[in-house]
Computed example of a mutant assay.
Amino acid sequence: MWLERLFDALQEDRISYIEQLGEFWGQLCVTPAIASAWADRLLGITTRVLGPDGHGEFFTGTTACLSALYGAQRYAELSRLVDSARLNWWHYRRWGVDALVALGRPAEALRYAQASQETNAPPGVVSTACGPVPILWTP
Rank of each mutant, 00 (worst) to 15 (best):
A99Q: 03
G131L: 11
A37F: 11
V101K: 01
R94K: 09
L66W: 04
L21S: 13
N88K: 10
G131I: 06
S116G: 15
E108K: 12
A99M: 05
A115D: 14
A115T: 06
R86K: 13
A109G: 12
A72K: 05
G131T: 10
A72Q: 00
M1R: 07
I45M: 00
R93Q: 04
G71H: 00
R48Q: 13
P134H: 05
T62N: 05
L6K: 13
P32S: 09
A107V: 10
T62G: 02
C29D: 11
A33W: 10
A113S: 01
P132N: 11
W38G: 02
V125H: 02
W25L: 01
R94G: 03
L69C: 08
G96L: 06
E19I: 12
S36I: 03
R5Q: 15
Q27C: 11
A113E: 00
R105L: 14
M1H: 08
Q20D: 13
R74D: 02
A33I: 10
R74C: 08
T138P: 09
V30A: 12
W90N: 02
H55N: 06
E118Y: 02
V97P: 03
F7L: 09
N120G: 15
L42T: 00
F7W: 09
L100A: 02
R94I: 04
F59N: 11
T62A: 08
E77C: 08
A129S: 02
Q117W: 07
A9V: 14
C65S: 01
D98C: 07
D53L: 07
A102F: 11
S36F: 09
Q114Y: 09
G61A: 15
A35S: 04
V101G: 06
L69H: 08
V97M: 09
